[in-house]
Design a protein around this nucleic acid. Structure first.
Length: 514
RNA sequence: GCGGGAAUAACUCAGCGGUAGAGUGCAACCUUGCCAAGGUUGAAGUCGCGAGUUCAAAUCUCGUUUCCCGCUCCA
């Protein structure tokens, strides 16, 4: 197995063993693609998100924050295109495995004779055997074609091989649907069934009828935090008297029914985002794009041990979203290859325009200097917080051999580390424990995450804290009582230096500010 | 969604029809006195879950859940 697979396995194992990330609902067999952040993971995620908030919001006069509801008016998703764009009925061909949209498939009248065509004889033979085995139909093979199949009553066949052997139509919608209000919408469906109002409808009609019955209470969990910032654009701009250019930033959970979930917490259905919408005057958008993509790259590299594992990737014209004028991904070299960490997109005036149209409200900006009205363009740096957490864990993971033993060290940036300082009595006697406990109290009172640890031997304690990324260890030893000094050990170099007991907390504080 | 692999103690894994194991870790104590030191003792496992075959299943078969790898898909 490659080194890369090993790294992921080691990371998953470490995350569980040390309380960073657990499988969701593990005692019930686990829930697909859902993860819980344990005590250390919760701290790490919070630290990362705090750094982002500080960098993007608190450190800037022209950016303000928002914390919007996860459930929004369903019409928000109509306007944004999320609702219509993902409700197409998809069908899988059971013969050639193609997935296609039912409404765009070639039509074939029920009962009509079909000719199934394949790329070559070999594939035709495989298909022939598959059909006989799975569907009990013996077709006639003629070169790369199969004859003898008849079209079913659904009115279409596979667009690739023309087979009528298809899965049920399935609605693929990336959004999580729920219902608001205490009355279960299934009640209306049950009543309609009982009264026979749905009798005699075809599959598709039935679906539409049920949709109508449940629609009044249907709500969706947001698939991105971005829309709230567009929807609240006017409120934020007016209440804070913001002048364009300015940004609205938001962190929080988003939900997507991903078709494929993969790579541990990299792509999961429930995830956390850190997004900002930066509203600027049309014509200045290209400059702001340049500004923000470099700001954002700077952010990620600031806390990284391997800055060369981050890169930009400009989207090709063909892969740009329909609303976007340009897009740069910030990618990280994950163990399985380069992958997205953050996308910085020029969303133009698409979103504000859409919401203005759908809501009937004016979402414009009046520039008091130029006396001009315009719909701002938007530059959107949208980062995955949970991806960021994974990136920094992978980036920090380091192994080295010390005296024949492997030392695992998480070289997390001190400001990201869940525990900033461990305070350790060298042994449990001569009053060392009391001194150590007092130092822990002092650290905690200053708001520095600290941990007292007297378990086992000093070496094991150092290694344990190396593995969870604690950057500093303060050790109370035999000299402490005589000289009123303790040692501070650096996680990455294992080097120690003596400082006064009274100055130890200041010392740690200074190290964290660096 | 398709194909392949895996699931046994908190972690890493052995066992592969006949009494559930090791190392690490964890807890307590003794000893020690700066980089996973030594000793004693201890707790810990529905062998992922559910069926089936069998006198007997962790082990064989089927289903299922979760994870990993590769495809596919992905405003």
């Amino acid at each position: 197995m490659s080194e890369t697979g090993d790294l992921m396995q080691k990371m998953v194992s470490l995350c569980k063993r040390r309380g960073f990330v657990f499988q969701s609902s593990e005692i019930y067999g686990g829930l697909k693609s859902a993860y819980d952040y344990g005590p250390l993971g919760a701290e790490l995620k919070r630290n990362l998100m705090n750094e982002w908030w500080r960098d993007m919001v608190q450190g800037r006069e022209n950016v303000v924050g928002l914390d919007a509801s996860i459930i929004m008016h369903p019409r928000v998703w109509e306007a944004s295109g999320h609702l219509s764009g993902f409700s197409d009925p998809l069908v899988d061909c059971k013969v050639c495995k193609e997935r296609f949209r039912a409404d765009k498939a070639p039509l074939a009248e029920s009962g009509s004779a079909l000719v199934l065509a394949f790329a070559d004889k070999g594939q035709a033979k495989v298909a022939e055997e598959l059909i006989e085995k799975q569907f009990g139909q013996k077709l006639t093979r003629d070169g790369k074609e199969l004859r003898g199949a008849l079209a079913g009553d659904r009115g279409y066949v596979c667009p690739v091989c023309a087979s009528p052997f298809l899965s049920e139509e399935r609605q693929f919608n990336l959004m999580f649907r729920s219902s608001i209000g205490p009355v279960d919408p299934l009640g209306a469906v049950a009543a309609a069934l009982e009264e026979g109002r749905l009798a005699g409808l075809s599959g598709r009609e039935l679906r539409a009828a049920i949709e109508d019955l449940t629609k009044p209470s249907a709500v969706y969990l947001r698939p991105e935090t971005a829309q709230a910032m567009f929807v609240q654009f006017a409120n934020v701009q007016q209440s804070m008297a913001m002048k364009v250019p300015f940004g609205i930033a938001q962190m929080g959970k988003s939900f997507r029914n991903e078709i494929t979930v993969e790579h541990f917490i990299f792509r999961s259905c429930e995830f956390e985002q850190m997004e900002m919408e930066f509203f600027c005057e049309p014509g200045t958008d290209d400059e702001w794009m340049e500004y923000w993509r470099h700001e954002r790259m700077g952010f990620w590299k600031r806390y990284a041990n391997n800055p060369d594992k981050f890169r930009f990737r400009a989207h090709e014209k063909s892969e740009l979203a329909h609303y976007a004028k340009g897009c740069y991904d910030i990618e990280y070299l994950y163990p399985w290859g380069w992958g997205e960490l953050e996308g910085i997109a020029n969303r133009t005036d698409y979103d504000l325009g859409k919401h203005a149209k759908h809501s009937g409200q004016k979402l414009e900006y009046f520039d008091p200097f130029t006396q001009k009205k315009f719909v701002p363009y938007v530059i959107e740096p949208a980062a995955g917080a949970t991806r960021g957490l994974l990136v920094y864990l992978l980036d920090a993971y380091h192994e080295e051999v010390v005296d024949g033993e492997t030392r695992v060290c998480l070289r997390l940036h001190p400001r990201l580390a869940p525990i900033k300082a461990a305070v350790l009595p060298l042994v449990k006697k001569d009053g060392m424990t009391d001194v150590a406990r007092k130092i822990v109290d002092d650290l905690l009172r200053r708001g520095i995450a600290a941990k007292y640890d007297e378990q086992q031997t000093i070496g094991k304690r150092y290694r344990r804290h190396d593995e969870i990324g604690t950057p500093f260890c303060i050790t109370v030893d035999g000299e402490t009582s005589a000289t009123s000094t303790v040692t501070i050990r650096d996680r990455d170099t294992m080097a120690q230096r003596r400082v006064s007991v009274d100055g130890a907390v200041d010392e740690i504080e200074a190290l964290l500010r660096k």
